[in-house]
Computed example of a mutant assay.
Amino acid sequence: MTRALLASGTFAALALGATSALAGNLEEPVIAPAPAPVAVVPVAQGNDWTGFYAGGSLGYAEAEESDPANFEADGATYGLHAGYDYDFGSFVLGGELEISGFDVSAGGVDADSVARAKLRAGYDAGNFMPYVTAGAAQLNTGGALEGDDTGAFYGVGMDYLLTDSIRVGGEVLKHEFDNFDDSGLDLEATTASLRMSFQF
């Protein structure tokens, strides 16, 4: 009986010792925190429109004498232009000089050419730049109404950066010449042109 109790006590002591040893080797599990979500914010990829540019244009013109209504004519236009734009980030401001030859005549009156001094205000939409433009224009005529006079014009256009140095675009302009060259005639012209420019 004593041996049985002694054996039981020894077994119990060994069991408690083994349990303590095992418990001492157990560590609390380490749980790694979940990674924080990363927000992806789209960034607008704009282009820098700042710089000088120069190029040419081909287009179409409609001209008329509006007061009194005496003639209407249409024909081709062609021209050269040069200017400078400054990109403020999303707003582009610039100036341009342009001269366009006209192949427009009616009633013995020839619209020979128009020279323009432009202000342009545009929006930097990446590779695209829509803009508005206005300024002064000088019309030269020949034939039965030979002379020249300065009027105003306004219009809209758009440029597209084909490469870092090549722009293509289009423009529509409305011209008004009141009392042209003191003749008492009011002349108007609308032009639409395709343009190509090299940016420096």
Rank of each mutant, 00 (worst) to 15 (best):
42 P>M: 00
67 D>V: 08
66 S>D: 05
39 A>I: 06
71 F>M: 07
73 A>R: 09
47 N>Y: 14
75 G>R: 10
58 L>M: 00
51 G>S: 05
69 A>Q: 13
31 I>F: 07
44 A>K: 06
71 F>W: 06
42 P>S: 02
52 F>S: 00
73 A>G: 10
75 G>Y: 01
62 E>V: 15
63 A>R: 03
43 V>M: 12
38 V>K: 10
67 D>W: 01
32 A>I: 09
31 I>P: 09
43 V>K: 09
42 P>W: 00
40 V>I: 15
59 G>R: 00
45 Q>H: 15
72 E>Q: 10
34 A>T: 15
65 E>I: 10
40 V>K: 15
39 A>K: 11
58 L>Q: 00
50 T>Y: 04
35 P>I: 05
40 V>H: 15
76 A>K: 11
49 W>Q: 05
62 E>G: 14
49 W>T: 04
35 P>S: 07
40 V>T: 15
39 A>W: 10
32 A>M: 14
31 I>Q: 11
74 D>P: 01
75 G>F: 02
58 L>P: 00
45 Q>E: 13
34 A>V: 14
66 S>I: 09
72 E>L: 03
33 P>W: 13
37 P>R: 04
43 V>G: 11
73 A>E: 05
63 A>L: 01
75 G>S: 02
76 A>I: 12
33 P>C: 02
50 T>Q: 00
44 A>H: 13
64 E>Y: 04
69 A>E: 08
64 E>Q: 09
40 V>F: 14
43 V>S: 13
48 D>G: 08
45 Q>M: 14
61 A>I: 02
40 V>A: 15
51 G>M: 04
36 A>L: 15
72 E>T: 09
61 A>T: 03
